[in-house]
């Protein structure tokens, strides 16, 4: 079964909020959620996007030079 969501792990909340802002400008829906425990022991937040939006989301983040650490099925 294909995943419904992906999460994009970023260095910190500042980056998550900047990422959310960039995605919002491109009309890509996203949600900031706590980093899933299984992915990282970090106490911060990450960006969740719908699986279908992942390529566009990556493109938007790359274009705005928002660094992210990794992308995971969720």
């Amino acid at each position: 079964m294909s995943p419904v969501y992906y999460v994009i792990l970023v260095p910190s909340t500042s980056y998550a909020v900047r990422g959310e802002h960039v995605l919002n400008q491109k009309g890509i829906a996203s949600k900031l959620i706590p980093v899933p425990r299984s992915l990282s022991s970090d106490c911060g937040v990450c960006i969740r996007v719908a699986a279908d939006d992942l390529p566009a989301a990556r493109q938007a983040l790359d274009a705005a030079k928002v660094p992210y650490d990794s992308v995971h099925e969720f």
Partner: peptide
Amino acid sequence: GRAGHRLAN
């Protein structure tokens, strides 16, 4: 930036 709930975000 600590909790991830709506008010923290």
